[in-house]
């Protein structure tokens, strides 16, 4: 089975966000594979190990994305395509058009990706790609069983589990709990260096101006007001507990 994995490189979730000239500061930031995309990479490799086929990573982002791609290759992905973009402003609409135009040139049975990216968190691009390719989108997957031409997926829906089935190809977005991503092995890391990485530019793709034109516009980015540390209650535990209820009821008025 040939599987495409859509993967984004994101800030490490440990990172604090700071702004320089109204933009998110990237200096000194550790970058990782978007954690939800990492589940997708792992799932793709597991399916390949069982059924054979090839796993291709498809990414859109600055050239630093290569390090995330090499990590996915060290885990077991076979090859990758990176649409390099350093500074052309994009949004979910234009990003989906760009990725779809790359995907349309590939042969695939299944597309896997994360259900959201931990940086922007908008959770739009996979659904949009499903629409552009005319294939079903199945979101927040916690179990995937692909066999032959069919796939059965368990989805997390606000804590409930929904079991759905569809005929391939489909695009499936991973939720936490799908699997435990492996650590790259040392031989894996060595092999990854030589695996093929194709680099493309947006201009190389067959897209109209309208398709790469973002529909949305960012007006400003700001940091939330810093939360002040509040009151540590004192005294006997029973009194503290009573005081807390009293404060929540009469001062904060939330119970």
């Amino acid at each position: 089975m040939n599987i495409l994995v859509l993967m984004k490189q994101t800030f490490d979730t440990e990172e604090k966000i700071t702004l320089t000239d109204g933009k998110v500061n990237e200096d000194g930031i550790e970058f990782i594979i978007n954690p939800y995309d990492e589940y997708a990479v792992e799932e793709a490799i597991k399916i390949k190990e069982n059924d054979g086929g090839e796993v291709t990573i498809v990414s859109l982002g600055p050239s630093r994305t290569e390090s995330a791609i090499r990590t996915a290759m060290a885990m077991g992905a076979d090859k990758a395509i990176l649409v390099e973009n350093e500074d052309i402003p994009l949004d979910e609409f234009s990003a989906a058009n760009i990725l779809s135009s790359v995907i349309k040139e590939q042969e695939y049975d299944l597309i896997l990706c994360g259900h959201m990216a931990v940086d922007d968190g908008s959770s739009q691009v996979p659904q949009r790609i499903g629409e552009l390719l005319g294939i079903p989108y199945i979101g927040t997957a916690v179990k995937v069983e692909a066999s032959g031409t069919q796939v059965v997926v368990e989805r997390d829906v606000e804590g409930d589990t929904e079991i759905v089935e569809a005929v391939l190809p489909v695009i499936i977005a991973a939720q936490q709990g799908l699997n435990e991503p492996r650590y790259p092995s040392l031989p894996g890391i060595m092999k990854a260096k030589k695996k093929p990485l194709e680099r493309l530019e947006i201009e190389d793709l067959n897209l109209s101006d309208d398709e790469v034109q973002p529909r949305t516009e960012e007006i400003s980015i700001y940091l939330p007001p810093k939360k002040e540390a509040g009151r540590i209650l004192k005294g006997e535990l029973a009194d503290q507990s009573k005081e807390l209820i009293e404060l929540l009821r009469n001062e904060a008025k939330v119970i």
Binding site: K16, V118, R215, I219, I221, P224
Partner: peptide, 21 residues
Amino acid sequence: VVFTRPIYAGKAFVKKTIKEG
């Protein structure tokens, strides 16, 4: 319509608008 939404899970916020359509 100017929307406010969290990014980085609320470590920052962005104000956004939709230009056309």
